[in-house]
Design a protein around this nucleic acid. Structure first.
Lengths: 198, 198
DNA sequence: TTACGATACGGAGCGGTGTTCCGCTTTGTC
DNA sequence: GACAAAGCGGAACACCGCTCCGTATCGTAA
């Protein structure tokens, strides 16, 4: 496989110049709209912001997830790559895990509605969940394994379950100031350090 | 307190007989539809199942939350009342807390889409969140306080935050067999038992 | 029993959303 | 400059929540 291809990233050969321009315009507009109206903003709103028709959006990003993934791909990538780096640099594997989860939470919490979209099985969001899991689950697994091997946390925790739980905890952070997912996630990590539950 | 009153429970004097009949029919139909299509099933579907017009639904239950609350009121009530009972009967306050949370999770997990609706700020679901919090938060607070007083868990955890986190963790349980919120909630409880996080 | 106001009912209709589809425009090439 | 292919836009359709009002039903007083 010579080219990067996949979905929204790099040009993918032999597309018309105006099409490429539109793709970039769309990504910029979507990023902007996501900030103010959340990731499930009306398609029409994004189209209007970008100055294109709805057909153009659906042609470039068939499902909503494709658009969201394209917008946040860089940040997800950065988070994924931070895993091994933290593991190499931190005081201990568990410290690395804690820091990495901090990055993940920061990312989710600053993107309005993203956490909710991540588990929403309906709409075209299914692919979003898939992308996040495929990209980040192995990273999380590596950190977990290292911490287990170091004897810092109990074994048996599945990375998928942990990530999904953290994602769920980040849902709806904005709606009530009394709710701060970080405290609960800290509790979860403390729980991991317990040798065994009764 | 002589009368139950409030919203969807007991007759509330001087309503027409057919109206009361319809209210009961609606509750039964809604309960049935919620099982198969989740708590955000189309209003029209519930109306059709009950054999009434949509106007009748909105007259009896102005917001979706009112309908959901009416359908599940008994179970929420039972959960709330179980709190003090467990506290009196269990081996320790923390054991009671654990059992009570088990009841709460069982309830949420068996109602398709309820957990998600609980945090969804949009639609007419806001009142649902309010009802759950008002009814169950004090119960949770009592259990937490008792466990803290017994020295079984660290102080400082807010009941609202804990309940909301548990609710969030229960979201989307059906979509993937690898995800079981109970394990994570167990982890959370283990974390509570830690004296202090670093 | 009848007659009549109050009460409740039903569903057409409105506004908003996702998604499709096809006539028209733009682009790149010969 | 001409012409196919690629791309564009937005009208149109389906679905949903919610409102509103003409009509049907109920309870009661005569």
């Amino acid at each position: 496989m010579p080219s990067a291809s996949q979905s929204g990233e790099v040009p993918a050969r032999s597309k018309r110049a105006d099409a490429l321009r539109n793709q970039q315009t769309l990504l910029a507009a979507a990023a902007e709209v996501f900030v103010t109206s959340g990731v499930d903003a009306p398609i029409r709103e994004i189209a209007a912001k970008a100055g294109v028709g709805m057909g153009t959006i659906y042609r470039n990003f068939p499902t909503r997830a494709d658009l969201v993934v394209a917008v946040y791909r860089h940040q997800v990538e950065a988070c994924a790559e931070a895993g091994p780096v933290l593991l190499a640099g931190a005081d201990s594997p568990f410290a690395a895990l804690r820091q990495w989860i901090g990055l993940f939470v920061d990312f989710l919490v600053t993107k309005h509605g993203l956490a909710g979209a991540l588990q929403s099985d309906s709409s075209g969001f299914a692919a979003l969940h898939t992308y996040f899991v495929e990209r980040l689950e192995p990273v999380c697994a590596q950190l977990l394994d290292a911490a287990v091997a170091a004897g810092e946390i109990r074994p048996g925790t599945q990375p998928y379950e942990l990530m999904r739980g953290i994602g769920n905890l980040c849902i709806g952070r904005d709606s009530d100031p009394r709710y701060d997912p970080r405290r609960l996630i800290g509790l979860l990590l403390d729980g991991l350090q317990q040798p065994r539950s009764p």
